[in-house]
Design a binder for these strands. Structure first.
Lengths: 206, 206
DNA sequence: AATGAGTAAGACCGGTCTGTCTGCACTTGG
DNA sequence: CCAAGTGCAGACAGACCGGTCTTACTCATT
């Protein structure tokens, strides 16, 4: 999950007598936070639980992250990389070659993601609605959501679609709507969104 | 807001010497809860604040609602009536006559709703994502969301559209996606969703 | 050997949370 | 006139919150 070495059961990665873990405390905390925040949201996970699960002292936690909110900000950045960039956009680009096909492939990835038993919805949406758009964490979430839209817009431009920003905003409505529907239990939400996404491409083709 | 008499400033509705308010404690609590829960979510509003704002003793609160969750359930039911039934579906039916026009009018209502300065997003979505689909309140939210879909499906059937349940599920994706986009600050989200909604109607017209 | 940095463990602080319970004021019915 | 019921005010309990700080220990370097 986090770079190399998965925190709790790292494979004793060395030779010398470094019995106690080296300075990877920050990585371990962040790895634990990623799992818990993504699955259960921010408010439901307390600092004490994060500390206990990552086998770290409280002072160590607060040396690496001066506040819980700063850890959440680090989580959001990591989420952007692991989820938005690697898992969604990256996967979509792997599965197709032409830009419009890559766009549609997003919903193929969504479809498989929705079926996972540990489906945790979109952390950016969750935190935005949990904290509100005025809260710093809500604002950060809005920012990361706009980055997602930026990926879509870039693909739309590569595809030569008309009015790529409007296209991306409409496309994003489909992405977010299907995620919420999946949270309700509609496992076909990705297919429905993909169908509408096809019409959207048609209407933005010059 | 709540039936008749708006709680905090009720018009001294009687003649006799009923100095202390009658047995409308429950209504007042629910009215306050409606405002606070709709605007700030469930977790952010504590029982003490509800009690203070409704001018009620704690014992009185817990006599009417045995737990905070039971108050939230009552709030969700009230929200279904005031928001889903009255404000959205009711308004849409007022604004148009033919079923397909009534369906599209939903997004006209959304468009004005998104512009309100006290726009509070959809409490059912908020609470579902806040509590998770396994929590009793999350399950209740899913239930009320399915009722919204039921209204859409009924209109689709009146309009003679093809596969009304699939139609309603796709339509609901557009509704929820536009609400989240509005929470991010996209004031044009309703128009974008309405455009896609039009294509959806076309493709479900026999 | 001495030192200082980093760590685990956890006590502790002030505050908030839901929920219970007591005390007192008031109205109403017998 | 008195008892019952109702409601307000608020103390209180027990748990948990984020965050600070102390203590004891293990390292690496000098």
């Amino acid at each position: 999950m986090i770079s190399d070495g998965e925190a709790t059961l790292s494979p004793a990665e060395n030779d010398a007598a470094v019995a106690i873990r080296p300075a990877d405390s920050r990585e371990r905390i962040l790895a634990v936070a990623y799992e818990l925040f993504a699955r259960r949201g921010v408010r439901d996970v307390g600092v004490n639980e994060l500390i206990e699960r990552s086998g770290v002292a409280k002072a160590t936690f607060y040396r690496h992250f001066p506040s819980k909110d700063s850890l959440v900000l680090a989580f959001l950045e990591l989420r952007d990389q692991l989820w938005t960039v690697d898992a969604i956009v990256g996967q979509a680009k792997v599965r197709a070659t032409r830009p419009t096909e890559q766009l549609l492939a997003i919903f193929d990835v969504f479809g498989e993601w929705f079926l996972r038993d540990d489906f945790e919805a979109c952390s950016f949406i969750n935190i935005l609605l949990e904290m509100g758009p005025a809260h710093p964490l809500g604002k950060a979430s809005i920012d990361y959501l706009s980055r997602i839209r930026g990926h879509v817009q870039a693909l739309a431009e590569q595809a030569g679609l008309d009015r790529p920003e409007d296209f991306a905003r409409s496309w994003h409505i489909l992405m977010k709507g299907s995620i919420v529907s999946a949270s309700e239990g509609d496992t076909q939400a990705a297919k429905r969104a993909q169908q509408m996404a096809g019409w959207l491409i048609e209407h933005h083709t010059k």
